Amino acid sequence: MRVNKWGVGVILAAAVLLTGCSAGGSDKPAESKPSSGASQEAEAQAADCPELKDGATVDGTALSTCISDAMSDTAGYAAKTDVMGIESTAKFNPSEKALESTSPAGSLIAIGDDVWVKSATSEWQPADPKSSDPVIAALSAAASDISSLDPTTAAEAMTGEFTVTGTGERLGEEVYLVSGTIEQQGTAVDVVFEVTADYVNLAMTSTASVEGQSVEISMEITEWDVKQDIVAPL
């Protein structure tokens, strides 16, 4: 999500949008096996999902559907995101449509249709894209479309061909490195997803050129399928 030429807004909201596909699981909290809860639903759709194996070429649209389906029932998750060396943290409870993002530049909390923001020097306040404070305005504008911050919604942007370029490990699970290019807000974004065998995405790296500047964002889930403590600040 482009806000003020990828200024404050990208640190918070765009990181969530560009990293995508980061929700889902079972109702039982997982410790080191984050994708076990999603396996039943994913297995039921296995016939329609692309096989993940090293060197395979997979259809992005089919893969995004499988990721969204496998990850739609999580109790919640926590993640950390790095945007050009600036680290932020995020919490997400999909059943409540609740999101909290915190970085050195500012913070954002969205619960349903209600959104609050604060800069590093201000108190919490309702989002106001027309605020005279440029930081508050940027944060508010970045949060103006909460549905776009839903990582499951972001997964729908995966189209075209993707390639499995290797394997790795996240939170005790083997993951397949799935590489390709997606388009977000008119910008081509090179992405690498780290997807488990049952289509849970545990990490992602995305790189884009914006206004002539290379922007790299990395995301990794740090806590999976655990309801997060997200409360209204006002």
Results as ranks from 00 to 15, higher is better:
A90E: 13
S148A: 14
P134D: 00
A79W: 07
K118R: 15
Q125V: 14
K80G: 08
D113P: 05
A137H: 10
D113I: 10
M84R: 12
W124Q: 08
I182T: 12
S131Q: 07
A138K: 02
A105Y: 07
S140K: 04
E156D: 07
S140Y: 09
G106N: 04
K130D: 00
E169P: 03
G166F: 08
S95E: 14
A157M: 09
S88G: 15
L177T: 07
M84S: 14
S132V: 13
G166I: 13
G166Q: 09
D113M: 06
A141I: 10
N93C: 05
L108V: 15
K91Y: 06
T165G: 10
T89S: 02
D73P: 03
E173N: 07
G85F: 00
A120F: 11
S68I: 01
A62Y: 03
N93A: 11
M158C: 02
G168L: 04
E87V: 01
L99W: 11
V178L: 08
A141Y: 08
P126V: 10
S107P: 02
S119D: 04
K130A: 12
M158S: 00
M71K: 03
R170W: 05
I111T: 12
V135F: 04
S72Y: 09
S101R: 05
L63N: 03
A110Q: 03
A79T: 10
S179F: 08
S64A: 02
S147V: 14
V135H: 02
V164G: 08
E174T: 15
T57P: 04
E174V: 13
A70W: 00
T57F: 09
T159M: 06
W116R: 06
A127N: 04
A98P: 07
S148F: 12
A142K: 03
T89P: 01
A127C: 06
V117A: 06
D128F: 09
I67V: 15
S72K: 13
A155R: 06
A62R: 09
G76P: 08
S140T: 12
E100R: 15
I86P: 03
A127E: 10
K118I: 06
A79K: 09
D113V: 11
S144N: 08
L149T: 00
L139K: 05
I111K: 11
S179R: 14
I109P: 07
T163W: 05
T152I: 05
G60Q: 03
L149N: 05
M84A: 14
M71P: 00
M84V: 06
W116N: 08
S179C: 05
A120L: 07
N93T: 13
P126N: 10
V175F: 07
V115M: 10
D114R: 02
G106K: 03
D82Y: 02
G172T: 00
L171K: 11
I67Q: 03
A127L: 09
E123Y: 01
S103A: 14
D145V: 13
T153H: 10
K91G: 03
A98V: 14
T159I: 06
D82F: 01
T102D: 12
N93Q: 05
V175R: 04
S148C: 06
G172M: 10
D59W: 01
P104Y: 01
K80F: 07
D113K: 14
E169S: 12
V178T: 01
G60N: 01
A70R: 05
D150H: 05
G112F: 13
S147C: 02
S72D: 15
G166Y: 11
E161F: 07
S144F: 01
A138L: 05
I86H: 04
Y77F: 10
S88L: 12
W116E: 01
S68T: 14
T153L: 03
A98K: 00
